[in-house]
Amino acid sequence: MQIQGFDFRGQQLVAGVDEVGRGPLVGRVVAAAVILDPSKPIAGLTDSKKLTEKKREALYPLIQERALAWSIAWAEVAEIDELNILHASMLAMSRAVNQLTPAPEYALIDGNRCPPGLVCPSEAIVKGDLKEPSISAASILAKVYRDREMKALDVEYPDYGFAQHKGYPTPLHLERLKKYGPISEHRRSFKPVARLLEQHSV
């Protein structure tokens, strides 16, 4: 977490919140929360999926430098398997919001529902990462952070192609998963992984 000097100017501290990694078969689900500084605008903020990897990597430190506050949090694979991916995503987002300093006075959540247990009132915005710059910033932080985790996992397990597919169930991932079997970071509750585990236990 990082905080820059800020001026309240009578305005609310509004955090944008987004998560990345609901669909992959492997790794944590990652969320970010960002309170932007109106006096330090950041050009080029939009949904992280619409940006090139190079552009996301360039914006990542800019957001951290210019935001009033930012936070990255996650839910572990074990929590995903225990709670299900929706509830684990909500948990990751609530953690990201609640560890912001200063605490936000309001949170804008990408999607159609708000996580429980937030320190502030919140509002869900469908396609918010295209509409609200603070949510766009959060989507970029979460995406870059999680992609870096997948690249690190690729170094540890080079046979699976994690740097290419980022854990999503692509034909390459499914083929390698079938060939080499699940690793500890695979989500046991996801069907392609669960099916393989069932087959190996027979």
Rank of each mutant, 00 (worst) to 15 (best):
residue 35 I to A: 13
residue 66 R to M: 02
residue 120 C to Y: 08
residue 153 L to K: 05
residue 72 I to E: 06
residue 87 H to I: 08
residue 202 V to P: 08
residue 122 S to L: 03
residue 162 F to R: 09
residue 47 D to C: 11
residue 160 Y to I: 01
residue 43 A to E: 15
residue 155 V to E: 13
residue 175 E to W: 02
residue 155 V to K: 15
residue 156 E to T: 09
residue 14 V to K: 11
residue 167 G to R: 00
residue 83 L to W: 15
residue 37 D to I: 11
residue 65 E to M: 00
residue 65 E to Y: 00
residue 141 L to I: 09
residue 147 D to V: 04
residue 47 D to Y: 15
residue 107 A to L: 08
residue 3 I to E: 15
residue 31 A to C: 07
residue 174 L to P: 03
residue 112 N to I: 13
residue 174 L to M: 09
residue 182 P to D: 00
residue 178 K to D: 09
residue 46 T to P: 00
residue 145 Y to K: 09
residue 159 D to M: 15
residue 194 A to Y: 09
residue 182 P to I: 02
residue 135 I to Q: 04
residue 37 D to L: 10
residue 109 I to F: 06
residue 201 S to E: 15
residue 166 K to S: 05
residue 17 V to R: 06
residue 85 I to R: 10
residue 149 E to M: 11
residue 27 G to T: 10
residue 66 R to C: 11
residue 150 M to E: 10
residue 1 M to Y: 07
residue 30 V to W: 03
residue 176 R to Q: 15
residue 193 V to W: 00
residue 44 G to V: 14
residue 20 V to C: 14
residue 128 G to R: 06
residue 7 D to G: 05
residue 9 R to D: 15
residue 134 S to N: 09
residue 164 Q to C: 05
residue 30 V to L: 03
residue 21 G to R: 01
residue 138 A to E: 05
residue 26 V to N: 04
residue 60 Y to N: 04
residue 136 S to R: 04
residue 54 K to Y: 01
residue 199 Q to V: 05
residue 12 Q to I: 06
residue 163 A to M: 01
residue 30 V to H: 03
residue 78 A to P: 00
residue 23 G to W: 15
residue 61 P to R: 08
residue 90 M to F: 14
residue 183 I to K: 01
residue 40 K to Y: 04
residue 157 Y to S: 02
residue 192 P to I: 07
residue 97 V to K: 09
residue 112 N to F: 12
residue 24 P to Q: 11
residue 191 K to E: 13
residue 145 Y to Q: 06
residue 86 L to A: 05
residue 179 K to N: 06
residue 61 P to T: 12
residue 72 I to N: 02
residue 10 G to S: 10
residue 44 G to C: 13
residue 100 L to G: 07
residue 22 R to G: 12
residue 172 L to F: 12
